[in-house]
Design a protein around this nucleic acid. Structure first.
Lengths: 194, 194
DNA sequence: ACGAGCATGTAATTAGTTACATGATTCG
DNA sequence: CGAATCATGTAACTAATTACATGCTCGT
């Protein structure tokens, strides 16, 4: 039930409507926890019922009404209590790794193509994170104490994406070594062990 | 519905009972896709109904009966077709990153403690992967072609775990520098192997 | 005789995804 | 006027988790 805690963290940083949260889960927070708007509205409604959050309707004339949520004291307590519980080990779910392993039983070229696509995706994500870091933290040795957690999580994102890109490159080196497209030396599609 | 495909990959490598699969999902395959036995039995039953797998009961006297599953032709086709579809971008689910970000609104020391725990967990996992690699692939430049995918996925695991450990160290450097005597962060993954 | 491990399942609950649905405002 | 974005939801379905349940065998 961790979406609940992700919402608590986000609301603790700043109050928001369901719509605001949806956009946050598409950006910074969403790099580490994805959620769709349906999930968010439903969970928010339950949390309201449980007294963890409270909403006030903000009616700005000439705009649709917004239900703006805030943490209640119970919500703040729940969040603090959660930080005191050990994080359970994450259960990996990498369809990509499974697919690479399934390569011998499927379409080799298609999987290589998929690795290229995956590499491109993570390279893009990495570039995005690094741009954020350069913009928001030009001097990493002088990050303000209250911004440290956000900075450190961003650092985690950078490290993770870089690792992914490097891994893809390693795989491509093994599976599709830089071949000269014009003149292949020998027409042997099979790899040989040395 | 990717557990289905993980099962197809595993059965393509070697036929197995539900129990066998459960153990595989606790070991090698499970490093990239976790599943409990309930999930596996249920999914296996559905796949049987869909004609992707077929079972034969193996009765060894003096042992409980086993339902041993194999891929059918339809299963092999489905697996091959799956390798031809692009892997959708993975949606991150890192409760740990969310908790780090929630640090300012919770118990700082408890979160630092959690980072240490997380570091220990991933260091252990890393050591395990590196031992496997050293045992099974003593000469990485001479990995047999048919073992390449398994090797490359293991490499991904090693890279991922090392990154995690390094990230934890970076966080601890920022959050609790005096508490740690100088421990080599990355440098030598000393392998105390037999 | 008893506990550990083998082997297979059902049931109930919770979480997540996909599809459907509505209405208002702003910009071109 | 039509498309895009803001803003909020319901309903149906699929997947995942947790708890419960059974019976066999092997070693001590």
């Amino acid at each position: 039930m961790s979406l609940e805690h992700a919402i608590l963290v986000s609301l603790a940083e700043r109050s928001a409507s369901g719509y605001d949260l949806t956009r946050r889960f598409d950006r910074s927070l969403g790099f580490f926890w994805k959620a769709t708007h349906q999930q968010i509205y439903r969970t928010l409604a339950r949390m309201d019922g449980d007294g963890l959050v409270a909403s006030t309707v903000s009616s700005v004339p000439g705009r649709p009404d917004r239900k703006v949520y805030d943490l209640t004291d119970a919500g703040r307590q729940e969040l603090a209590a959660w930080t005191r519980t050990p994080t359970p080990p994450e259960r990996p779910r990498s369809a990509f790794a499974v697919k690479v392993r399934g390569m011998p039983h499927g379409d080799r070229d298609a999987v290589i193509e998929d690795i290229r696509r995956q590499r491109a995706h993570h390279a893009e994500q990495l570039a995005h994170y690094e741009a954020s870091a350069a913009r928001d933290y030009p001097d990493p040795s002088a990050v303000a104490a209250d911004e440290l957690p956000v900075y450190l999580v961003l650092r985690g994102g950078i490290r993770t994406e870089r690792t992914y890109v490097d891994w893809c490159d390693e795989m491509l080196d093994h599976l599709a070594p830089p071949a000269r497209p014009t003149v292949p030396p020998t027409a042997s599609p099979d790899q040989e062990k040395s």
